[in-house]
Amino acid sequence: MWTKIAAATLMVATSVAFAEKPVQSVELSRVAEKLRNHEIKIEQGPGMDREHGRFHVIHSDVLMLDCSTCHGKPKYREGVLNFSKFKPFPVKAKGQFEKDVCLGCHQEGGIATSFYTPSTTDE
């Protein structure tokens, strides 16, 4: 009886664990590794320009991230102190990009080049 319950619990726990681990992130980490090792070559130099810069080529064309992954609403969020907020929002832009999204991959220990250290709030 207890063996069956334990086995069932294990199966549920395993399926939950797999369900919570998106397949996409595994793929992203592999691609990110290949980018760092120059196995995937990008012709463009560093730049934000959609056509001629590496930034959008890497994130959008190679890693296949949808624009909406980073770009939110076509305006700055209310109540968020961001230096850029003083500027009028560009008409042609996809939408204000949420900096928090970057943390997912670019924080220390993430799959991408580390730009951010772990939070300082626990000091």
Partner: peptide
């Protein structure tokens, strides 16, 4: 500086 804009992109404050 080569004007690539990466500093602006990664700055949490958009400085």
């Amino acid at each position: 500086c080569i004007g690539c804009g990466y500093c602006f992109a990664v700055c949490p404050y958009g400085v």
